[in-house]
Amino acid sequence: MLPTPKRFTLVAGSGEGNTPLTAFDSALLNAGAGNLNLIKVSSILPPQAQYDPNLSIPPGSIVPTAFGAISSSKPGEIITAAVAVGIPEEDTFGVIMEHSGHYPKDEIEKQIKNMVMEASSFRGIPLREIKIAAAEQKVKSCASVFAGLLLWY
């Protein structure tokens, strides 16, 4: 059985590269997650997980991560990725949502906030607050954006 993470942080970044994969790697580095092994997880914040904006994770660690990302090779196109988490009022789990697309940053932040509120409502979880991280990039040649919630122990 895997241990349940007790801490989390939100990160977001953007980057350019010669290929979609190297652009994604550049976005990960810009977000501060480029030297980690990310394992994509679905969208539940563990109970009692504490937010740590300065969370330090050793390089090479295997990190459960809820994330959104998008890449594009169309110069001038706007791409954006966002992640949001609903922090519950009571001592229970929270909901994480990820989204990416061809939207301005302020629009995707509104969309993702509404997604968290709706998903929390489905579960009957009143929220104390919503935290959001987002990255926007105007493509020069080949770009990627990444937004993720990193879970740690």
Rank of each mutant, 00 (worst) to 15 (best):
S144R: 08
L10C: 14
T65M: 14
E77Y: 08
K6S: 15
P47K: 02
L151P: 02
G17C: 09
L149A: 14
F8D: 02
E16V: 09
A135I: 11
E77A: 11
G32L: 06
G94D: 02
E136H: 02
S120G: 12
V95G: 03
E109R: 04
I57L: 04
V83M: 08
A69I: 03
L21C: 00
I79F: 07
F93Q: 09
P75K: 05
A27D: 11
N54A: 13
P126W: 09
N54R: 11
D106R: 06
N37W: 04
G101D: 03
M1L: 15
A119V: 04
L36S: 08
G34R: 07
S141P: 00
S56E: 14
S121D: 13
K40G: 10
G15S: 15
E129T: 12
A134E: 11
A27V: 13
T22G: 03
E129I: 01
I78H: 02
N18W: 10
G68P: 06
G34F: 06
T19K: 15
T65I: 02
T65L: 09
L28E: 02
P5M: 13
G13N: 15
E118Q: 04
V145F: 09
G60Q: 07
N35H: 14
L28D: 00
L151Q: 11
S120M: 07
E107M: 13
I87E: 06
E16S: 15
V83D: 04
P58E: 15
N114A: 08
I79Q: 09
F67L: 11
F8Y: 15
S71Y: 13
E90Y: 09
A147K: 12
A147E: 04
A33S: 08
Q137C: 07
L36T: 10
E118I: 04
A133S: 05
L38E: 08
I130C: 07
D52K: 03
A119W: 06
E129M: 06
Y51E: 04
Q111R: 09
G148E: 06
L149V: 14
G76S: 05
H102M: 03
K74H: 04
L149M: 14
N37P: 00
Q111M: 10
K6F: 00
L36K: 06
A49W: 00
V139E: 00
P75F: 05
V116R: 00
I78F: 05
K74P: 01
A84H: 11
S61T: 12
E107A: 12
E77C: 01
W152V: 01
N30V: 02
G32W: 10
L36M: 11
M97T: 10
S43H: 08
E118D: 04
I78G: 01
I44Q: 14
A23V: 12
A31C: 06
G124S: 03
V83L: 10
N54E: 12
P53Q: 13
N54P: 01
I57Y: 03
L38K: 08
G17Q: 10
P126M: 07
A81E: 06
L55H: 10
K40I: 07
S43I: 01
P5R: 13
V85L: 05
I125P: 00
A134Q: 09
A27Y: 13
S14H: 14
F146T: 13
G148L: 09
V95F: 05
